[in-house]
Every structure is written in structure tokens, then in C-alpha cells.
Simulated scan of single mutants.
Amino acid sequence: MDAAAGRVPTLTLFCGLPGSGKSTLARRLEAAGVGVRLATDEWQAAVGIPHADGAFHEHLQALLYRHALVLLRAGVDVILEDGLWMAHERASKFADARSTGARISLHVFDTDLDTLWARIEQRNTAAVSDTAPISEAELRAAWDVFEPVRDDELAAVDEYSRHRGGLD
């Protein structure tokens, strides 16, 4: 809790595959003053490291996450723009947020595979510099490992929103 402001910070999290609308919503939330947005793909592009460098991506993601926890402890609201595909990732983020005294807001994106691929194809064609290009095979591999959010996970957060087929 931020004693000076008398309020509890919020960690905003996302659960969704590439192309589901996470970045679009995260940018909207940041513009609305919901928190400081941390997006690994954008930071990686900003420092000039190719998206294909997966080891750097993982290292940067861990650094930004540690920074998110520092911000939460300081009473700053954070929007963490990761997909959190696996239940164990979500559980870890929930536990860490609670250890800082933060509230948790979760956005769950339920988007079908065809819609995801159509959006990713469009994004790949536009060659947006701060997003990682994704192949159809990579999307299908992600689809195969993705673990949908369970009811007990929803019960563990302070608030959640479901987005079906896009941003609604």
C-alpha cells in the first residue's frame, strides 16, 4: 500500500495469445492513466536487439518484471503486457503481486485461432517495428501449449474482464 497516497497499487495482467488484442488494450489503459505499461517486445525493439534473440527477450522480460515489483512496492500501478499462457505463470504473478500488497486486475482474451492468425498476418505485413513477427507454425505451437484461465484463477484476482474475439 502506498502510505503517502493512502491507496493500494494495482497490477494489471493479461492472459492471451499473440494477436488477441493485449497490446491494443494495454496502450489504451496506459493512455487512460491506469498505470505504467511494461512491454518486453517494445523495450527490446527500442534497444535495437532483434526479436529473434529469444535469450535476450527472456532476460529482458525477467528484468522488467522485477522492475514491475519495485514499482508496485512503491505504490505505482503497473500494466504488465505479457501473455501469461500457462497457469503456473499466472499463479506466480498473482503470488508476487500479493507479496507487494497489490490488487490484481486480469484481462482474459478468448480469441479463436483463425482470428488470431488473420490479425498476426496483418501485423506481420505492416512490419510494425516494436512487435515480434510470428509465423503460423509459431502461433499454432503457442495455441497447443496455452492453458485457458480456470475459475479458481478468476476467484484469486480482485477483478477480471473477458474479451471474446477482440476488444469488447
Rank of each mutant, 00 (worst) to 15 (best):
E147Q: 15
A118C: 05
D152L: 09
A132S: 10
D151L: 13
E136K: 10
A126P: 01
L116F: 02
F109T: 03
A142E: 04
R150A: 15
S129Q: 04
E121A: 10
D144S: 13
D114I: 11
S129G: 01
A126G: 03
D114V: 15
V108Y: 01
D144H: 09
V149E: 01
T115L: 14
L113P: 06
D152Y: 14
E147V: 05
E138C: 10
D130T: 12
A155L: 09
A156V: 12
V157C: 14
L113S: 09
V108K: 02
A155T: 04
W117D: 07
A118F: 06
V149Y: 01
T111Q: 05
W117M: 08
S135L: 14
R140G: 01
N124D: 05
A142Q: 08
S135T: 15
V157A: 12
E138T: 14
I134V: 15
D110R: 07
W143H: 15
L113E: 13
T111D: 03
S129D: 06
D110C: 04
I134L: 14
A127P: 03
D110Y: 01
P148Q: 05
T111S: 09
N124S: 08
R119W: 02
R119A: 01
F146C: 03
V108F: 02
A126T: 07
A132D: 03
R150F: 09
V108D: 00
E147W: 02
R140T: 07
A142P: 06
A156S: 15
T131D: 00
P148L: 06
H107S: 10
E136D: 08
E121Q: 11
W117T: 04
A127D: 11
F146H: 13
T115Q: 13
D144E: 12
T115N: 12
E147N: 06
R119H: 01
V157D: 14
A155F: 02
D158Y: 07
A137D: 15
L154C: 11
A141P: 15
T111W: 05
A126H: 05
D151T: 12
